[in-house]
Structures are given as C-alpha cells and as structure tokens.
C-alpha cells in the first residue's frame, strides 16, 4: 500500500499530458484527419505555457495561451491537408520537425529558469477515500479537468448532434456532404481543437509537472499519444486507461531506478516504448481478424466534393 499509492498517483500525473494529446488526436482523427504533428505541437505548447507563466506568473494564463497557440499551429495543418488536400502524413511530420526546432530555438533564454507553476489541490472529502482518494483526488486542477474532458468527449461523440456529424465526416465524407454537412468546416474545427489539446498536454509538462523548460522535454510523448489513439480504438475512455497505463510504466521505471537496482537505466527508459510496440503489434493482429471497428474509414484521405472517381 505504501508503495502502491505513490506509484498509482504518479501514473495519473505522468499519464495526464499524454491523455490530453490523445483526446485531441481522437477528435482530429474522428473527422478523418491524421495529425502526426502532435509531438511538435506539444513542444510548442510546453514552451508557450512556460514562457507565458514565467512572464505573467499566472499558470492558467500560460495554459490558455498554450491552447491557443497549439490551435493556431494546427491551422497550418488544416490549411494544407483539408483545404489543399496535401498528404497528411508528410504534413504532420513536417509539423513535428518544425515544432521541435522552433521551440528549441525560441526557448534558449528560458532554459534553467523556474516558475512557481501549479500545485496539487486535494479535493475536500473525495481525497479522504482510501486508495482512490490519494490516487485520483489529491492531484492538480488540470488532472480533474482531464477527468471531466474524457467523459465530456465520450458523450459528445456518441450522443450529440455535432458528435454525429464529426463521426460521419470521418467515416464517409461524400455521404456527409450529400447530407448537407460542410466537410471542410468540420475537419478544420476538429484539427484546431485537437491541436489545442495537444499543446495543453505539452504545457502540462512544463507548467504543472516540472516547473521548467527543457529542450525536447516531451521526449516522444506525442508519438505515444498517436499510438494510444489506436490502442483505445478511437474511444476516449479506453484511451484514458491506456494513457494511465503508459504513465504507470514511466513512473514505475523511475521508482525502480531510484531504488538502486542493477538493471541499466537505458533499459528501463525503454519500457514505455517497448510497450508501445507490443501494444501496436497486438492491435494489428486483432485488426487482421476484422474487429477494429472504431477506426474512421476515411482517415487520412483528402476530400474534394467535385472529384469524380
């Protein structure tokens, strides 16, 4: 118990940035747009959140601006992929490279600085519940927000009219267009929203978790988010479980290292990525069996209403 609670609590904390990015990518992909720029957008978000908080001393302002900048960055992706119909994979990779480089360049002067950031905020009453209390409700406000977001997006996708529209566009854009839905508008909005959430995930790392800016501090979490979308079969609840599982592996790895084991550190650092490979392999085997129903059928395909085939 003494060991379990801190590990689980850490799992939730380190899973949260991945969760934000994953939820954003689910919404984007459900509209049929694949955004592989998540990693770069997270980095830009981390830098923006840190920089704004550093200058304004307001972590909330930092997070909010990060969301906006993330959405603005993904407007490039939306313009190129939705409006012009370029290859989404190439564009996403370019966005990641751009975000990595730009954040390193702009963030030079902030390296080594620290901020007050955001602190844990135990929810009165709920945090007293044994086991669940300290794990789930002795966290910071952004973690609570992410809980709400998971359920909100799940409800949005399955039970609301705009959610139905979003899914229709990702499944069959031509059918959606014939039903009077503006495919480009839906895809633009989904891409911007997804980019905002990814940047928020990045900002969580710098503003809430570490209180500092380090070059390339996301270290692949954006890619894990992309993998988690598939892991959760495009479902917010399943993806949340995945995010915490990956967070847990990361947290466990830190503890094992701290406990002074003879296992070499790089091997432990590999754990989350090895898990990614294992999970993706498992999923593609299942895909071969035809069970993968959550994947949007038109994912990655550009759409022009007047194309003839």
């Amino acid at each position: 118990m003494d060991l379990l609670v801190p590990i689980l609590a850490a799992a939730v904390r380190s899973g949260t940035p991945i969760l934000y990015a994953t939820l954003g990518e689910i919404i984007t992909e459900k509209s049929g747009v694949m955004n592989l720029g998540i990693e770069g957008v997270m980095l830009v978000g981390a830098l923006t959140g840190f920089g704004v908080t550093y200058h304004s001393a307001s972590p909330w302002l930092g997070l909010a601006v990060a969301f906006g900048v993330g959405a603005a960055l993904c407007a490039i992706h939306a313009f190129l992929c939705v409006t012009l119909g370029v290859n989404q994979v190439v564009c996403g990779l370019a966005l990641t490279m751009f975000g990595t480089g730009a954040s390193s360049l702009v963030g030079r002067s902030l390296v080594g600085e620290t901020i007050e950031g955001m602190r844990a905020f135990p929810l009165p009453g709920l945090s007293e519940i044994p086991l669940l209390g300290p794990v789930l409700f002795n966290q910071d406000a952004m973690v609570y927000l992410s809980f709400g977001l998971v359920f909100l997006l799940w409800f949005f996708l399955l039970h609301t009219r705009p959610g139905l529209k979003l899914r229709a566009v990702g499944e069959s854009p031509i059918a959606a267009a014939a039903a009077g839905i503006s495919v480009p508008t839906v895809r633009w909005m989904a891409t911007l929203f997804g980019g905002g959430l990814a940047a928020l995930g990045g900002a969580y790392l710098s503003v809430v978790n570490s209180h500092m800016w380090v070059e390339q501090m996301t270290s692949g979490r954006g890619w894990i988010a992309v993998a988690l979308v598939i892991f959760g079969i495009w479902h917010p609840l399943r993806s949340a479980l995945g995010a915490y599982l990956f967070g847990g592996v990361g947290a466990l790895q830190l503890r094992v290292q701290a406990a002074g084991t003879s296992i070499p550190a790089p091997l432990l650092l590999m754990l989350p990525y090895v898990l990614t490979v294992v999970v993706l392999t498992g999923i593609s085997i299942r895909k071969g069996k035809g069970i993968l129903l959550g994947a949007p059928a038109a994912l990655g395909l550009p759409f022009h209403r007047e194309d003839r085939d």
């Binding site: 039970h159 609301t160 009219r161 139905l164 529209k165 959606a176 039903a179 839905i181």
Partner: peptide, 12 residues
C-alpha cells in the same frame, strides 16, 4: 436518418 439535420437539439 438525422445526418445533417439541424432540428434535433444538441443532445440526441
């Protein structure tokens, strides 16, 4: 059936 129809409220 309701795809693209606007008059069904936000929550279906």
């Amino acid at each position: 059936m309701i795809l693209g129809q606007e008059d069904f409220g936000f929550i279906l």
